[in-house]
């Protein structure tokens, strides 16, 4: 099935060597992610959550096992093709927003379209459209330093969508935001997921995220502890606080 899975990982292993010790950050993770899914990867610090996230995003090479994005084996790609993949297929959202400080909101959103070879006019049009979509139509020419955290993250979300990616990878997108702003960002991500059909994979600690996720992947000691569907989760939503104690 070519189109059913947008990301598949097979027996992912990532080893780090520290002195004479070998540490397995990931120990045989196989995960299939459907097109259009909203997936949260949860787990305590040091669980291998970030390692899995980085491997899926093509930011880090696994020691063994493979990652397929749209049925393309990432290990087979050279530097140019990886860059192409990052530009067109994956959109990144970061905990610290990571806007380019020298550029305005619009220029930040337009940058990936420049890399993709879009003309300036087209890129600007697309940029304005996306910034309006995330509710920042009135702040096109503000520098990141003139925007609040929530607004910066909105710009980052608009930027991640610039080249119509099939996947958005969000690394702790609400980690640097207060409760309400975090909630707004999560709602925005969910609405994008619903309306644009973009697959969202997010690594997070934020329990607010559970509410909108289609599936939650709990990682523990480099392995998938369990995968929960939202329908199973609804029943237990009252025990949400207990989840933390579990890990």
């Amino acid at each position: 099935m070519a189109n059913e899975y947008v990301v598949r990982t097979k027996d992912l292993v990532k080893e780090y060597t520290m002195g004479d010790q070998t540490l397995k950050a990931l120990n045989g993770v196989s995960l299939d992610i459907f097109r259009g899914e909203y997936i949260s990867i949860m787990g305590p610090s040091g669980s291998g959550k970030s390692t899995l996230f980085n491997a899926v995003g093509g930011l880090d090479k696994p020691s063994s096992g493979s990652v397929f994005i749209n049925d393309v084996d990432m290990a087979q790609l050279d530097a140019q093709e990886l860059a192409y993949l990052r530009c067109h297929t994956i959109g990144y959202i970061f905990q610290t927003f990571n806007l380019i400080p020298v550029m305005t909101a619009l220029e930040n959103v337009t940058l990936p379209t420049v890399f993709a070879g879009m003309s300036t006019d087209e890129g600007v049009e697309r940029g304005i459209e996306l910034l309006e979509l995330v509710g920042l139509g009135g702040r096109l020419h503000h520098k990141p330093s003139e925007l609040s955290g929530g607004q910066q993250q909105r710009v980052a979300i608009a930027r991640s969508l610039a080249n119509n990616p099939s996947i958005i990878l969000a690394d702790e997108p609400t980690g640097n935001l207060d409760l309400n702003t975090g909630k707004e960002i999560i709602d925005l991500l969910k609405s994008l997921n619903k309306d644009q059909g973009v697959t969202i994979i997010s690594a997070t600690h934020d329990l607010k995220m559970l509410d909108v996720s289609d599936r939650i992947v709990w990682i523990r000691d480099g392995q998938i502890a369990k995968v929960e569907e939202r329908k199973d989760l609804d029943i237990r939503i009252g025990e949400m606080e207990g989840q933390e104690a579990l890990h």
Partner: peptide
Amino acid sequence: EPVSASGTVIRRQIKLPFTKAVEI
């Protein structure tokens, strides 16, 4: 050759025009 989902071969098309680079 790596093939994307739609069956098209992934081509190297990433670029940064000189004028844009100067601007940045």
